[in-house]
């Protein structure tokens, strides 16, 4: 597997030398292979969004090096290539929609890649299809008249239409209701199935993305406090509790059992299996509650 993202000793300082100088990131080392999904976690103000902007060269390191798809983001001449390879979806992307109809909004990126109009059309229809929007009935509508959840999907389609090698999503689930959140997870899952495209999801909620992620990185006040495989994180109870990371419900059951000295006898994979495990324990000769 080839390394698609390589972050070495990265530091970033906002407004250096001014009274408002603030170190947002310090000594970050993260690497990610092609096709992997990284979940990037941390509390409010931990530096997650700053890191996202560094990945596609919107800002560049004040120390260290960020290499994405073989391109050093410090090299100004190569940044144009970088923007084509790294798609960044900001927080609340639906607020950035500006075209007057859905088609032009999604076509904006592909047109700027210099593609032919027929190629643009193929990309737009494919991208809308991938976010669960029927292109035929929607392309002529004005985005302002659509609900927030649908507008977010259109904004994401606009990035998917660029077919980026690396997709960075900043809090894609924030503000969506449970239906919208599930749909977003499905979109991300479908992308991962190709195994060639790399994704980074920034979130403050471990629960949402644990099942999708290959690797996890945790930021705390600008420092990287964990970087590794999901299984490794799950074995580090001290880190989970120190950073008050909320586990999915079924894992909470497994950990609570473990804390009681009871090894769950099978790999619990969902809340229903967790319930069955509890029933097995109760009925295991100990009688009724």
């Amino acid at each position: 597997m080839s390394k698609i993202i390589d972050i070495k000793d990265l530091s970033y300082v906002y407004l250096p030398g001014s009274p408002y100088e603030q170190q947002a990131l310090k000594n970050i080392n993260i690497s990610l292979n092609q096709g992997e999904l990284l979940g990037l976690f941390g509390g409010n103000g931990s530096g997650k969004s700053t890191l996202a902007k560094l990945l596609n060269g919107l800002i560049y390191p004040t120390g260290g090096q960020v290499t994405v798809c073989g391109i050093d983001t410090n090299i100004k001449e190569l940044r144009h290539d970088l923007w084509k390879k790294v798609g960044l979806v900001f927080q609340y992307p639906e607020q950035q929609i500006f075209e007057s109809n859905v088609y032009d909004e999604v076509a904006y990126g592909p047109r700027n890649l210099g593609l032919s109009e027929s190629e643009v059309k193929t990309r737009v229809f494919e991208a809308l299809d991938r976010v669960g929007i029927f292109p035929d009935s929607m392309v002529n509508l004005s985005p302002v008249k659509l609900s927030g959840g649908v507008r977010r999907r259109i904004a994401i389609a606009g990035i998917l239409a660029l077919e980026p090698e690396v997709l960075v999503l900043d809090e894609p689930m924030a503000g969506l209701d449970p239906l919208g959140q599930n749909l977003m997870l499905e979109i991300i899952k479908a992308r991962q199935e190709k195994k060639t495209q790399t994704t980074i999801i920034i979130s403050h909620n471990l629960k949402d993305i644990l099942a999708l992620a290959d690797k996890i990185a945790i930021l705390e006040r600008g420092a990287l406090v964990f970087h590794g495989e999901v299984q490794e994180l799950l074995s580090k109870i001290d880190i989970l509790s120190q950073f008050r990371l909320e586990l999915p419900d079924y894992l909470q059951v497994a950990y609570a059992l473990n804390a009681r000295g009871i090894k769950p006898n099978n790999d619990i994979k969902n809340i229903n299996e967790a319930g069955l495990e509890l029933i097995r324990i109760i009925s295991g000769g100990k009688g009724k509650l």
């Binding site: 609570a256 967790a274 029933i279 009724k288 509650l289």
Partner: peptide, 28 residues
């Protein structure tokens, strides 16, 4: 969901159980 599942099997859970670890603790 867990309380419901347990009650369907005939195991009643008292009302002041408010977290999963608490529930597991009580069962154990």
């Amino acid at each position: 969901q867990l309380i419901q599942q347990l009650e369907e099997e005939g195991y009643g859970i008292d009302d002041n159980t408010s977290t999963i670890p608490q529930l597991v603790e009580k069962i154990c």
